[in-house]
Design a binder for these strands. Structure first.
Length: 496
RNA sequence: GCCCCCAUCGUCUAGUGGCCUAGGACAUCACCCUUUCAAGGUGGAGAUCGCGGGUUCGAAUCCCGCUGGGGGCACCA
């Protein structure tokens, strides 16, 4: 089996593209075969420099590799269509079609076409299907006119009657049947001489011996043209598998690059793990047994089968993705998580770049405190900030946050004073020792842990939600903890 | 408008004629754990399988129609 992923470098690779690549890759790896990466850059107008790199980087990031492609080469190269065009690879096939009378030169210009469409619409004809007058001309007549220098495109001479049918692996049952009078004479070669997708991809798939064409379902309506072309050439048709669309989370339409934040690299920036993306994306249109969801790369390869790809569309679910990322983060060891969190800390300016040994050690010590609270790595700097930057009542937090529910300022001051006293006498600054001391203080003051610990938490972290208190105190350190407590007490006294 | 595809809890999905009083996951609610938040545990609510006709002893599962949703109709891919 030979499959391929053939994106066009018109922008950043979005998540839907990765899904298509993933399914192709999974197929090649599961069934045994080659996965080819081919860049389809025949649209000079929409070409975006750097987009091809973004494609490679994004695919490699999630762990997809290819057996043949622009950078790794292969027996059917080159793997970039513009280069193939330069080599004249498509030309003989155009000639073949022309000579056989299966395609023709069309001299109707884009402007004329636009006018015809407008006129058709004005006349109430909703479906404008173009077929050029030259389709009935002898080839010689077409060539003569072309020789005068008049620009032309090459169009497919689609049959006027009959029907075209093909099967789709994912929509297993009946054949998809299209009446030929519903087709039109699509452009195969632009007036610039550059082939259009419909032609170029097909020639390349043939030359590269692709046996299964797996792509997004938006291609179903144009598959009749492709099938016609295979038959015209007398080439064996590949198998077709059109993947279900991924719909936007609100259900309104397909996920789109323009409307949604779905550039693959954006997920990386937000702290999604590649293993999460691979796993989640595999579940966009495929399922294993309806129960098992968390699967490694190897398990996905072993379990992936074409039969279990859904025909119905998947819906993008950011919450589920987030949840799954949390699961994968919790699977990491402290060392692994620290390593992955480090760049985010550096970007937030909390840790230097390069990080010193001390900084690395400190981070390693703090990681366990946030490990199971993290769902996106980008949240780490925010959760850890108070370990790195001072907290000041009235500046980084509101002093009234110190006062627990059903307590007043005076009571809070008394509690914090007692806490400061107790901690100031504390020699052993480890979590268990701190716990013994503070629990003892609760009994001594006959207050519940909730209010006391809450007040201390706000004083030391500047927030009411933070990791467990004793670990936090130990992490912040004796001197800073006492100073923050003192500052909190002072701020409250000032309020009275 | 025309053509094509799709249709099970709010969402994703299991289900391929009887194992379905429809299973799992996310989200949601409650309780437990608990110093806050998470994580974890337990439990709840949530789907007359879009609607209407068939076929069959029997249908979520097969057939037809309707409706709804999605996609396509470029010298873009």
């Amino acid at each position: 089996m030979r499959v391929r992923f053939a994106p066009s470098p018109t922008g950043n690779l979005h998540i839907g593209g990765v899904r298509t690549a993933l399914f192709n890759w999974l197929c090649a790896r599961h069934y045994g075969g080659q996965f080819v990466l081919r860049i389809e850059d025949t649209d000079e107008k929409r070409f975006v420099p750097g987009a091809a790199d973004d494609i490679s980087v994004s695919l490699r990031w999630v762990g997809i590799d290819w057996d043949e492609g622009p950078d790794v080469g292969g027996p059917y190269g080159p793997y970039v269509q513009s280069e193939r065009f330069e080599l004249g690879i498509y030309q003989p096939f155009v000639e073949q079609l022309l000579t056989a009378g299966l395609a023709y030169m069309s001299f109707t210009t884009e402007e004329e076409l636009a006018q015809m469409r407008a006129a058709a619409e004005a006349a109430g004809i909703k479906a404008f299907r173009f077929r050029g007058p030259e389709r009935d001309w002898p080839l010689e007549q077409q060539r003569e006119l072309a020789a005068t220098g008049k620009p032309y495109t090459v169009r497919l001479k689609t049959p006027l009657e009959g029907e075209t049918r093909f099967r789709d692996l994912i929509r297993g049952g009946d054949e998809i049947v299209v009446q030929n009078d519903q087709l039109q004479d699509i452009v195969l070669i632009k007036s610039t001489g550059m082939p259009v997708y419909h032609f170029a991809h097909l020639v390349d798939d043939y030359l590269m011996k692709i046996t299964l064409v797996m792509r997004g379902e938006e291609w179903v309506p144009s598959t009749p043209y492709h099938v016609l072309l295979y038959d015209f050439f007398g080439w064996p048709r590949p198998l077709f598998a059109h993947l279900p669309a991924i719909l936007r989370s609100d259900g309104k339409g397909k996920l789109s690059k323009r409307k949604d934040d779905v550039a693959t690299q954006r997920f990386r920036e937000r702290g999604y793990l590649p293993e999460t993306m691979l796993n989640y994306l595999a579940l966009q249109g495929w399922s294993y047994d309806g129960v098992t969801e968390i699967m490694t790369r190897e398990e996905l390869i072993a379990r992936f089968t074409l039969e279990r790809i859904q025909p119905s569309p998947a819906r993008w679910n950011p919450e589920k993705l987030r949840d799954m990322n949390g699961i994968y983060i919790r699977k990491l060891t402290t060392d692994q998580l620290a390593e992955r969190v480090l760049p985010f800390m550096q970007q937030a300016g909390l840790i230097g770049d390069p990080a010193t040994a001390t900084e690395q050690e400190y981070l390693l010590r703090l990681i366990p405190l946030i490990h199971e609270r993290l769902e996106e790595l980008q949240e780490a700097p925010e959760l850890l900030e108070f370990f790195y930057r001072d907290v000041k009542p009235g500046e980084t937090y509101n002093p009234t946050d110190l006062i627990p529910k059903k307590h007043d300022t005076a009571q809070t001051v008394a509690m914090l004073r007692a806490a400061w006293e107790a901690l100031n006498n504390q020699a052993d600054w480890t979590p268990p020792a701190l716990e013994t001391t503070l629990r003892g203080l609760c009994e001594q003051l006959s207050v519940k842990p909730g209010p006391l610990f809450g007040a201390i938490r706000v004083a030391v972290t500047g927030r009411s939600v933070a990791p467990p208190l004793f670990d936090t105190l130990a992490g912040v350190g004796r001197e800073r903890a006492l100073a923050r407590l003192a500052a909190a007490i002072a701020a409250l006294e000032q309020m009275e």
